[in-house]
C-alpha cells in the first residue's frame, strides 16, 4: 500500500473506533427498515475500514498484475450466482448461500467485502431483498465476518497441512454458517428479549436461521470445492499468482 492509501485506511479505522465506543451496537439479509437508525449507521461505519482496505487491495493487486482480474471476476460472479439461488431446506423454508468463501480464500477477506457489497446493493435496489438502510449490517455479516472466518480457517488449515480440499470445504462451510450467526447477533442487539436480554434473543434468532442454513452451508462448501477443482485444472497460472498453488506442483 502507498503512503496515501495507508492514511485513508488509518482514518477510516479511527472513525470506526469512535463509533465502536457507543455501547449498544447493533445483520443474512436483514429486511429494509427493520433495524433502528443508530444500528444502521453504526454497522455501516464499522464496515467502512474493511471496504476501504478492500478497495485498495483490489486496486493494488490489479496494478501489480492486470491478469488477476479474471480470477477476481470469477469470484465476484460466483457470489452473484450463489446468492441468487434460493434453495429449499429441511425446515420447509428457503434460504440462499453467500458464496463469499471462494473470494476470501483467493483474495483475502477485505477484497471480498467489495464484491459482496456490489451484490448486496444489487439485491437491495432491484430485488427489495435486504435493504439500503440495513446495507451496513448486511455487509458486515455477509461480506466481512463470514469471509474473515473463511480466510482464517483456510490459513489455519494450510499451516496444519490439512488436505487442501478439506480445508476449502470447511472454510466455505463455516464461513456461510458464521454469516448467519452474526446476523442473529445483530438482530438480537437491536431486539433484546424482554426477559434474558440480548443472549436469549440471539439464541432465538439463531434458532430460526441455523437449521435452515446448515444443509445449505454444507452445499456451499461442496460447490466451492468443485469450483476450486475446476480452477486447479484449468487456471493453474492464475492460482499460482495469487498464491493458492505452488509452482512445483
Amino acid at each position: 500500500m502507498s503512503k496515501k492509501q495507508k492514511k485513508v485506511v488509518l482514518f477510516s479505522i479511527w472513525v470506526a473506533a469512535m463509533f465502536a465506543v457507543t455501547p449498544a451496537v447493533n445483520a443474512m439479509h436483514i429486511m429494509e427498515g427493520y433495524l433502528p437508525v443508530k444500528y444502521c449507521i453504526a454497522w455501516g461505519v464499522i464496515s467502512l475500514p474493511f471496504l476501504v482496505v478492500g478497495f485498495f487491495s483490489i486496486k493494488n493487486k490489479l496494478k501489480e498484475n492486470r491478469k488477476q482480474i479474471t480470477l477476481l471476476a470469477m469470484a465476484g460472479a460466483f457470489i452473484f450466482v450463489i446468492s441468487s439461488l434460493k434453495i429449499p431446506s429441511v425446515t420447509g423454508s428457503c434460504s440462499h448461500m453467500t458464496g463469499t468463501g471462494l473470494g476470501a480464500i483467493l483474495f483475502g477477506p477485505c477484497a471480498v467485502s467489495i464484491l459482496g457489497i456490489i451484490v448486496l446493493i444489487f439485491q437491495a435496489i432491484l430485488l427489495a431483498h435486504g435493504g439500503l438502510t440495513t446495507l451496513g449490517a448486511n455487509t458486515f455479516s455477509m461480506a466481512i465476518a463470514g469471509p474473515l472466518l473463511s480466510f482464517v480457517l483456510y490459513k489455519l488449515g494450510n499451516k496444519l497441512k490439512i488436505n487442501k480440499r478439506v480445508t476449502v470445504f470447511f472454510a466455505a462451510f463455516l464461513g456461510d454458517l458464521f454469516t448467519y450467526c452474526v446476523t442473529s447477533i445483530q438482530l438480537a442487539l437491536a431486539y433484546p428479549s424482554a426477559e434474558g436480554g440480548v443472549a436469549v434473543s440471539a439464541i432465538k434468532f439463531l434458532g430460526v436461521f441455523a437449521p435452515t442454513q446448515l444443509p445449505l452451508a454444507v452445499l456451499e462448501g461442496i460447490i466451492t470445492v468443485l469450483i476450486v477443482i475446476a480452477l486447479e485444472t484449468y487456471a493453474k497460472p492464475e492460482l499460482i499468482k495469487v498464491g493458492f498453488m505452488k509452482e512445483a506442483n
Binding site: H29, G33, Y34, S95, T133, F205, V208, F209
Partner: peptide
C-alpha cells in the same frame, strides 16, 4: 427464511414492528 426472521422480531420484541423505511 428472511421472512421467518421478521416474524421472530415480532415474537421477541413482543410488539409488531413497523419498518421505518420501505424498499
Amino acid at each position: 427464511s428472511d421472512d421467518a426472521g421478521s416474524v421472530m422480531v415480532e415474537e421477541v420484541s413482543g410488539s409488531v414492528y413497523e419498518p421505518w423505511f420501505t424498499p
